[in-house]
């Protein structure tokens, strides 16, 4: 399958589950900002979790399918249409050759993932297809997509071929055929424009003043315009330390909330640096990373404290549900 970029949208990049194994050399992880939506889109078209998708930001790309394709769109609702007809999210969709996928306004969220059966084929750099913008490596020529780019997908997985056969039998005159089933709302993270995000105490929690600790888990914070794939800067109550202690740099992670001297928290996200020297007040539970990834400047978020054990249990329960959904899909195709 191939597709041609007519308009690239605001920031459209090739991403996968991230570039792991090279952080000790200072190479950042990158990868999808919303790992759940990325994975769901791949699952719906029969791909592996690690296959590459397109991450579209706020304003989606216009893409022409120059061959028939099996796709799924998950995450933000950027009002996608194919040849002018609205396309459902969170479902496999069989698309006919010569049609054009476009986006309208952003109805919900910030990042939308387009998976194509076979995965987006770009060279693997250090075990990953993710785009690392600052170093100009990975993804499509190490950069965001531009008009005129042509993208290819890899060989069709067996399950994708089954899905296509299944959907084609229902094909009528339209430009595309969605499946009758998909990822149900009960499986989705609690996406909201004002989400409540569960987090555990960070390594330097004890360094913060009692009123700052209390404010962090009770007051609202606003996502500022200084927010991108590297991190979100938040505006809210100023968080202060009991005393200024210097932290020597150590590793940070996806969802680390660090607080520089001026007291405004920064949430580190997919394109975070590998190490940091600011005190860490909290760490977002992995299951809630999709919630913050789908907020945009101006949105208001709140943090609520859970224990490390709870965060772990939530992650394992989410995995159970995804694996059951996967089995359900296989059952439908059998």
């Amino acid at each position: 399958m191939t597709m041609r970029v007519i308009r690239p949208g605001l920031l459209t990049t090739v991403q996968d589950t991230g570039r792991y194994g090279y952080q000790k050399h200072g190479v950042i992880v990158s990868g999808a900002m919303d790992p759940f939506a990325h994975r769901a889109a791949n699952l719906l078209v029969g791909n592996r979790d690690s296959d590459a998708t397109l991450e579209m930001t706020l304003i989606g790309a216009a893409l022409e399918f120059t061959e028939d394709a099996l796709i799924a769109i998950c995450g933000a609702d950027l009002s996608p249409t194919i040849d002018g007809v609205p396309v459902p999210l969170w479902k496999p969709v069989w698309v006919k050759k010569g049609t054009v996928l476009e986006s309208g306004g952003c109805r919900f969220g910030a990042r939308s993932y387009l998976a194509v059966a076979g995965g987006i084929q770009v060279p693997v750099v250090m075990n990953s297809r993710s785009t690392y913008l600052r170093a100009g490596i990975g993804g499509h020529e190490g950069r965001p997509l531009r008009a005129g780019d042509v993208l290819k997908s890899g060989p069709l997985p067996e399950q994708s071929a089954l899905m296509i056969r299944h959907l084609r039998t229902h094909a009528e005159e339209g430009a595309f055929v969605p499946a009758e089933w998909g990822i149900g709302p009960e499986l989705l993270p609690m996406y909201e424009s004002q989400p409540v995000i569960r987090a555990i105490r960070g390594s330097q929690w004890d360094w913060f003043a009692a009123d700052s600790q209390e404010a962090f888990f009770s007051q609202p914070f606003r996502v500022t315009p200084q927010s991108d794939r590297m991190g979100y800067r938040l505006e809210g109550p100023v968080l202060s330390l009991v005393r200024q202690t210097e932290l020597i740099s150590e590793a940070v992670s996806f969802g680390t909330v660090q607080v520089p001297a001026e007291g405004k928290p920064i949430v580190l996200l997919a394109d975070r640096q590998t190490t940091g020297g600011y005190p860490k007040i909290a760490q977002i539970a992995s299951v809630d990373l999709p919630l913050i990834a789908q907020t945009k400047p101006g949105d208001v978020i709140r943090f609520v404290e859970i224990s490390r054990a709870e965060a772990e249990a939530l992650l394992l329960d989410r995995e159970c549900s995804i694996r059951q959904a996967k089995l359900g899909i296989q059952f439908k195709l059998a």
Binding site: Y20, T274, L316
Partner: peptide, 20 residues
């Protein structure tokens, strides 16, 4: 998954699902 050495720490990243 990988580890990151720093001045005084080594941080080990693991896959909780694989461990489970």
């Amino acid at each position: 998954v990988e580890y990151i050495p720093a001045y005084a720490t080594v941080t080990i990243f693991y896959d909780p699902v694989a461990v489970y």
